[in-house]
Design a protein around this nucleic acid. Structure first.
Length: 400
RNA sequence: GUGAGAUUAGCUCAGCUGGUUAGAGCACUGGUUUGUGGUGCCGGGGGUCGCGGGUUCGAAUCCCGUAUCUCACCCCA
């Protein structure tokens, strides 16, 4: 038997229902905020992700579904959504049009990882990207929007926030931090590795010994330039006014290189170790970096499988008709009656000749509201017997 | 890439220290005397015990390998 590849899942009932339920309602919410639908290819040139996500990131370093296509082109299945959207944005010269542009998208992403709870090789994200707005009020607005989405689906979360600085303040800080790490002995293996890949990550180390060593280390919060600090404060004030609870997490470092300034994650204790249900931040330099005209931008993505884990589908009511024949002679009349009823909505027909009891069972199992049957009597009188399975009422309807 | 646990009917699982026809619940299906469901009662179908080797008179059970799933590290949505 051929099975799906490791870490790849079929979306079957009832997840399919949940998926549509999530997409429909989330799309509605983000459209209220001015985001419009956009779709970009799943396959892109590998260089796009190397340049945007960053060569030092784990995603590019070891998790990409990368291969050479028949035209000898180095291509790769997208590991995240932002890079493709930015590429499209620049390619369509929207960076030259000026103004503010807001897009949302959803679809499959691919990362070659070991699967675990909340982590698949093919997974789905719903994301939004806002271009052309540098005001931190937009950051706040997006965070408020995500809260609206999570609240709509009634999921638990806490919001974690950090500012990652910008090209003015981050590089000098990083140098200072690396210098500190190099002059201090005794860090664990992971931290030594992080020193060259993503030094800020060392603050996140679970090793208590490393934490003690880090006490005298320089902190990014103290190193932010004036603009970064003031923007961050505006964001925090706006969130407070909107009564959005948050916790500052100075160790929150996004794994993608393109982030600057605002970084945030919505985490939930209802998930496993992979507890981020949504994450994002500002990436003011990325458009420029992908050969566009400098355009500030901010975006986020929701992990659809992760949020679906926490969504309860509202109870569906009985719906539509179930049609069944009691005698072979009734089959033709029933088939025509079923087709006619379909003009008014959902109809499921059983082609089996069964007892009334068996058909009622069938209608019940099919979750139909009405059970419609033709037997000897109905055939003679040219009628259709219909029972409402909820109200438990019956009626005879004339057949035409 | 590293580590741990799991894999027996469509689903959830039982099967003790290897012993004769591998079980249960749910689901499916039929009947329950004359045309009434979701909620009674009785019956029925369905499994080469993940796959490949090995030990043994004999393996679902023990050993080795392999695949997949699950969880965690790492990292992230």
């Amino acid at each position: 038997m051929i099975k799906a590849l490791k870490g790849m899942k079929d979306t079957l009932f009832p997840e399919n229902e949940k998926y549509s339920y999530f997409i429909e309602n989330t799309s509605k919410i983000v459209q209220k905020y001015g985001f419009s639908f956009i779709e970009t290819p799943i396959l892109e040139e590998t260089a796009l992700f190397k340049r945007s996500v960053g060569e030092s990131s784990d995603i590019v370093g070891k998790e990409m579904y990368q291969f050479i296509d028949k035209g000898k082109k180095d291509v790769c299945l997208r590991p995240e959504g932002t890079a493709g959207i930015v590429r499209a944005f620049v390619e369509a010269k929207m960076d030259r049009q000026g103004g503010v542009k807001r897009f949302f998208y959803y679809g499959p992403m691919f990362r070659y990882e070991r699967p675990q709870k909340g982590r698949l090789r093919q997974f789905h994200q719903f994301g939004c990207e806002s271009f052309g707005e540098s005001n931190p009020l937009e950051d706040a607005n997006i965070i408020i929007m995500i809260k609206e989405i999570l609240d709509f689906f009634d999921v638990n979360y806490t919001l974690e926030l950090n500012s990652l600085g910008c090209p003015t303040c981050l590089p000098p800080f990083r140098e200072k931090l690396v210098a500190f790490l190099e002059t201090t002995e005794g860090f664990c293996e992971d931290c030594l590795r992080r020193k060259s890949t993503n030094p800020i990550r060392v603050f996140d180390c679970k090793n208590p010994h490393c934490q003690t060593l880090l006490e005298p280390a320089p902190r990014l919060n103290d190193a932010l330039c004036q603009e970064c600090e003031s923007d961050f404060n505006t964001l925090l004030t706006t969130l407070k006014q909107a009564k959005i609870a948050y916790t500052l997490n100075p160790n929150l470092v996004r794994g993608l290189d393109y982030y600057s300034k605002t970084a945030f994650e919505f985490v939930s204790t209802d998930l496993g170790a992979q507890n981020a249900v949504a994450g994002g931040g500002r990436y003011d330099k990325l458009v420029e970096f992908l050969d566009g005209r400098a355009t500030p931008a901010i975006g986020f993505a929701i992990g659809i499988e992760r949020i679906m884990d926490m969504i309860k589908l509202p109870d569906t009511n009985r719906e539509g008709y179930y049609f069944g024949a009691l005698t072979p002679e009734a089959q033709t009349a029933l088939f025509q009656a079923a087709h006619k009823q379909r003009e008014h909505g959902k109809v499921m027909q059983s082609y089996e000749i069964k007892s009334l009891k068996a058909h009622l069972k069938g209608a019940d199992k099919a979750h139909a509201r009405y059970c419609a049957v033709i037997g000897e009597d109905e055939l003679q009188n040219n009628t259709l017997w219909v029972k409402d399975l909820v109200e438990k009422t019956e009626e005879m309807r004339p057949l035409n």
